[in-house]
Design a protein around this nucleic acid. Sequence first.
RNA 1: UGGGGCGUCGCCAAGUGGUUAAGGCACCGGGUUUUGAUCCCGGCAUCGGAGGUUCGAAUCCUCCCGCCCCAGCCA
Length: 553
Amino acid sequence: MTHSQKPNNFIQQVINSDIESGDVSQVITRFPPEPNGYLHIGHAKSICVNFGLAEQYDGVCNLRFDDTNPEKEDQEYVDAIIEDVRWLGFNWQNDVCYASDYFDQLYSWAQFLITQNKAYICELNAEQMREYRGTLTQGGVNSPFRERPAAESLALLEQMKNGEIDEGRMTLRAKIDMASANINLRDPVMYRIKKMAHQRTGDRWNIYPSYDFAHGQEDAIEGVTHSICTLEFAANRPLYEWFVANLPLPSKPRQYEFGRLNLNYTVTSKRKLKQLVDEKHVEGWDDPRMPTISGLRRRGVSAQSIRDFCNSLAVAKTDGVVDMAQFEHFIRDDLNNNARRAMCVLDPLLVTLTNYGADKTEQFTAPGHPNRDDLGERRLPFTHQVYIDRNDFSEDSSLSRKKFKRLVIGDYVRLRSAYIIRADQVKRDASGEISEIIGSIVPDTVGQDAPEGIRPRGVIHWVSASSSADCTVKMYDRLFNKAAPDAGEGSFLDHINPESLRIIKGCKAEIGLASACAGEHYQFEREGYFTPDSKSSELVFNCTIGLRDNWNS
RNA sequence: UGGGGCGUCGCCAAGUGGUUAAGGCACCGGGUUUUGAUCCCGGCAUCGGAGGUUCGAAUCCUCCCGCCCCAGCCA
């Protein structure tokens, strides 16, 4: 809806010319995840590209599971992926699609190719096949089974399908060109034996189609016009086209590749993310430090900001690494506009106001948002004892006003939406640490400018000592302390940031936060954005991201 | 040493022979501010390199350099 005059990317240019030439009347795309892990921020870009294009051209985008390898796939992933795509805000008019729904059709197309003398059953084992394939610089050698009669291949394929052949003993291969400079064309495998139950087809099949033999045909069945994938599939395109050209398909889809999203200080590889989960380096796929959609959601990152970020990215053929700061900008941008404001003291230090009645309570109001009246207002009880953050107080009165805009002994500070107060003296505990500040309010300063002669150094947040909500706050830092965790020698695991999670107990939140619910976003003023943790029964807030702070100290 | 793809500001990225080479992020100044936030104003590149074509090139040609992907019965 907020489509600016952003220039067309190369795929849009292709679509425009396809529409102009009449080759395409309705744009159909698809987002084709393999259910072998949870979706991450990189997938979000692909989702936005595919669903976004369908939306822009009044077309259709299917959510289709590329479930051709039961060895790695699981229903848990299917469910999680559907939830994540929905949460991101996308819908599809067709039912969810599955490659496994096309297994029968794929099988008969395989038979067709055999009949056409364009596929054969090969009995080379994995190692032999590798040797016969040749190398990057040397062509391969034809398989001794290459000229096997079609009738024989047909019969063997049937046996493979029926479970009469052991795994690894045979494969169905396309007969293309063992001398091709493109290794993908050196008689690629179309079917391999896997005597394994599939989450959707059960034990019906003992053979499963390879990605290359399945993907283009799935697209053709669904009438996909523009099959958009990432750069690493560019070398597979000639093979994609070979199947499209040699099979009697209902449509002729075309493949286009764009650069996947890479972010620094994190990893976006399902394999690596799964390793982090399996080896318990994180709590799970939805650990708030994970770049997964579910992790980001639990962290408090909004779907809107993920979409905004993805839409800010270029759809091009360069494979760069986007700075995390660019993502963070969009996270803050949305939260700043929409998160309700609140106050929460993370490291409470008691302040007793001696000139304020010990049993007195005033109810102050503060806006839910500084410039959005529709977010209403909140009530803040004020009492003679309040908490402020330990970091907001200093005994060093030589600190310049510019350098330290907080409370200093003998000086004034504004308590946000409340009184201006002064710190008069401190109390210490046995270890010498400050245990309490004794101070006083400046009367009649609520909602009023400071009186003549009094200049508060700044504004700090606070919470009533007798009327607040106890809570725990979880602060997160980047999961890796190296910009490119998987570059160079060693494992990406060597660069895990040991301080990526900091749990702060005993925080004091303004009383209204006692009823905060998961899914809500708050800005704790002067601190950052927080969201209640969906996995906790107690009041626990996850820090989504801190506020920008431009002051160097 | 094979094939495919890519190189424009610290990062992302427009640009498709004639523009002062967009924009965003980051950064640096300044203003507003009961959040050191937000917001506002301003600053910030000659296009991987070398030749060449042209009145004129980031855009065309040549050579060179660099980076990424492909040798799973993974996707």
